Amino acid sequence: MTTTYAVLLRGINVGGRKKLPMARLRTLMEGLGHTGVSTYLQSGQAAFTVDHGDEESLAAELAGAVEREFGFTVDVLVRDHAYLAAVVADCPFPAAELEARQLHVTYFSQPVDADRFAEIDRPAFLPEEFRLGDRALYLYAPDGLGRSRLAECLSRPRLGKGLVATTRNWNTVVKLAELTRTG
């Protein structure tokens, strides 16, 4: 049985570091036996279909291939359509009423316990807000991610080692669900 997935690569093509042209990513993924490979933007998203593996093994396989081909390590998350569609459907904020730059989702490699964020003084950051979902964190930042004080507070040092996290704006979140829809 074939399954359609999205792949999210963390931190590529940002600030001139870890350059990974999307055409070469597509070729690399096709070389791994993936079919129907398409990329979205230049920031490390692709959709593909495959008849073997699971999210974790596919992510590890692609991370290894990128390291061999490009000479750098990159964190990779792979998610299927059902998960991506649920992330869109479960958004706790009124996405249809917001600009894409105001709403972001951070995808995590594993579930994140709310205790990790318990010490954050949420009222101090209003109107910015965040909510946890299934291996995801939804962030409402009315002035955008670049100006968000809350985003900085939620950043990687708080997440600790061993947890992969990568953030996408709402347009990309919706597009990934669309790209992985079959039929």
Results as ranks from 00 to 15, higher is better:
V50H: 02
V66L: 07
L9H: 00
E55Q: 13
A151K: 00
H52G: 08
H104E: 11
N171V: 13
A136W: 00
T167L: 08
F108E: 00
M1G: 15
S43C: 14
L132S: 00
V50A: 08
D143A: 12
G183D: 15
Q42T: 07
A100L: 05
V164N: 08
L62M: 04
R168Y: 05
R79Q: 01
L103P: 05
R181L: 12
G53A: 00
D90W: 06
S43G: 09
F125T: 04
A85G: 04
A85D: 12
Q102N: 04
A60T: 11
H104M: 06
C153W: 10
G64R: 01
G160D: 12
A177V: 10
R158L: 14
T35C: 14
R101H: 14
P123R: 05
L139Y: 06
E61W: 07
T3N: 10
H104S: 03
V7Y: 09
R17H: 14
L154R: 03
E178C: 06
E119L: 14
F125D: 06
V74G: 05
E67P: 05
R131Q: 15
E119P: 04
D51I: 07
E30K: 01
Q45Y: 15
A118H: 02
F93K: 08
T35I: 15
A118K: 09
S109D: 12
Q42H: 04
V174T: 10
V88A: 05
S109Q: 09
L28S: 00
Q102V: 03
P123H: 01
T27V: 15
D80V: 02
H34A: 15
A124Y: 13
A96T: 13
M1L: 15
L8S: 03
G162L: 11
A63C: 07
V74P: 04
G64S: 07
K19H: 13
P92R: 08
R181A: 13
F72Y: 11
V112E: 12
A65E: 11
T180M: 10
R68L: 14
